[in-house]
């Protein structure tokens, strides 16, 4: 089941440094939500708080509330490891595990969680995930080769396959196309369109056209001034954002008349 995410008054710190301040938003289930904004305004930081990856960094912490289908993500009784199984993540740079084959990379999340599974089930899962990531046809003959041997775009789709193999409900993507060529990019955009029917997707991008193409809703983050914490300026349906935004600074940023 895809899930919606409610964020209220979320402030995010690195040690004493306040990186993002007071975010409120509701991320719809089975929709694509895009975050845009200038570099350093805290898009990645915010994204990583949505599956508790933020606290992996020493000294990092949050204040405020993130609710996923009625449960508070930062409640003391919540196991962050379980959260990350439900809410998967794809990173900016493709990062397949270098010691593993393509096959092992895909089922890494399942296998390393020590779930025993029959060979036939594993095979089926690998095929399903790779098909889901639009990679099956390209790699089906070399599943036992190292994942690092693929091209950058293929590696990124392998990482997406790896993320969806654990069957999460939400998929977070941090600039998944920024290291890729236009063809790989459009392959991944197509993929996002397909995945939308099953997953809640949140994507960070620097590419305005991409945000306009793939997302249903868009959030614009900005810095009040250099050295100030980032904050959410506007959160609206994408069509409205790109045609008739509420905030003048959003319009300035989108139309390129920024800073």
């Amino acid at each position: 089941m895809a899930k919606s995410i409610d964020v209220s008054d979320l402030s995010i710190y690195y040690g004493d440094f306040l990186a993002v301040e007071g975010v409120n938003m509701t991320i719809r289930a089975k929709a694509v939500t895009a975050f845009i904004g200038p570099s350093g305004c805290g898009k990645s930081t915010f994204l990583r708080t949505l599956n508790r990856m933020h606290e992996v960094i020493p000294g990092a912490r949050v204040e405020g509330k993130v609710m996923v289908s009625g449960q508070s993500l930062y409640d003391p009784t919540i196991d962050p490891v379980a959260v990350r199984r439900r809410i998967g993540m794809v990173f900016q740079r493709p990062n397949p595990f270098p010691t593993m084959s393509i096959y092992d990379n895909v089922i890494a999340g399942v296998k390393l969680n020590s779930r025993k599974m029959r060979k036939s089930d594993a095979d089926a899962l690998v095929e399903r995930s790779l098909r889901g990531a639009n990679l099956w046809n390209e790699v089906k003959d070399r599943l036992d080769r190292p994942g690092m041997g693929l091209s950058g775009g293929q590696q990124q789709r392998l990482c997406i396959a790896r993320a969806i193999a654990v069957e999460p409900e939400v998929l977070l993507m941090d600039e998944p196309c920024s290291a890729l060529d236009p063809i790989s990019t459009s392959a991944i955009e197509d993929l996002i369109h397909q995945l939308k029917s099953e997953y809640t997707i949140v994507i960070v991008t620097h590419n305005m056209q991409q945000a306009a193409r793939v997302s249903d809703e868009t959030g614009f983050f900005n810095l009040k001034a250099a050295g100030q914490p980032g904050h959410l300026v506007e959160f609206n349906p994408t069509t409205k954002m790109f045609t008739n935004p509420d905030e003048p600074s959003t319009e300035a940023y989108i139309s390129g008349r920024f800073g």
Binding site: D9, Y13, E55, R61, K65, Y74, P76, D79, P80
Partner: peptide, 19 residues
């Protein structure tokens, strides 16, 4: 405003540790 007491927030991060 659900969390008001600021600094000792890392506690939340440590609350659940798997055996």
């Amino acid at each position: 405003m659900s969390v008001t007491a600021p600094p000792p927030a890392p506690r939340a991060a440590r609350a659940v540790v798997r055996p």
